[in-house]
Amino acid sequence: MIMRPHATALLVCTILAGSPACMYAGTDKTDNDQEIAALRHDAEKGDIAAQCLLGMTMKIKHEYADAFRWFRMAALQGQAAAQHYLGWAYHYGKGVGQNYTLAAEWYEKASALGYTASHNNLGVLYEKGLGVTQDFRIAETHYRKAALQGLADAQYNLGLMYRYGKGVQPDMTEAEKWFSMADNNPGRSGENGLTTVSSGERNPKLTMKNGRDVSSDI
């Protein structure tokens, strides 16, 4: 089931690597209780796409425990986007206790199915040694995979790797190239059909000084 676009949220379902992928764009709340009820009905009957979309709806509404429940149901059935968001829930302790090891495991599953943002978030975990053994080379590999697919967060993070010589030889020219790509990234429709744009917080020109790695919430 695909929910119709309405004033406060847009939920879409597409196909990624052989499984439905869910994604969203909108504000932090939805006002269409009838659509949510219909979506919940389908999810409870085992519709994987509906489960993922319902999880995203609950995430938008900041009802994280409910979101976790639906993401987990879809993730266990091999739904890539749900696996990513389950990893995200464990990564940040949203609706479940924070667990970096489980976050890494679910990001790995989603990235194996081609979910770009999971590569970026795995890069963050490997760079910081959160839930995995710290390994700059593996972090750089994941950042690069996502960066080459147009994810601005990953382009920025890859730039940081070159700036500080993590997993690669220090190279300010290469760093500036990736910072520029992230800064000028107009948004690209990736596997989830959404636009990824550097925000003020994530703008390399604004944040390059503090060397902050950016994980992806898409």
Rank of each mutant, 00 (worst) to 15 (best):
Q79M: 08
G78I: 07
A67D: 05
Q83G: 07
A67F: 05
L113I: 08
A117S: 10
F68Q: 01
R72H: 08
S111E: 13
H62V: 12
N99C: 14
G93V: 04
A104P: 13
A82G: 05
L76R: 13
H84L: 01
A80N: 08
G123V: 08
N121M: 10
A65C: 00
R69K: 15
H91T: 01
W88S: 03
A117W: 00
Q83F: 04
Y90C: 00
R72Y: 01
W88E: 05
A80E: 08
G95A: 12
H119W: 06
Q83V: 10
A110F: 00
A81R: 00
G93N: 07
K61Q: 15
A110R: 01
A110W: 00
A65R: 14
E63L: 14
H119V: 02
D66I: 08
N121Q: 11
V96Q: 12
L86K: 10
W106C: 10
K61G: 03
L76Y: 11
Q98K: 15
Q83H: 09
A74G: 11
W70F: 15
F68G: 02
Y107W: 12
A82N: 07
Y107V: 08
L86Y: 08
A65D: 14
Y92W: 10
A117R: 01
Q79C: 14
N121C: 13
F68L: 02
Q98W: 02
Y85A: 01
L86H: 09
Y107D: 09
A81Q: 04
S111W: 02
Y100L: 09
L125R: 05
V96P: 06
F71A: 06
A82M: 06
Y115V: 04
K94E: 14
L76D: 15
A104N: 07
Y126Q: 05
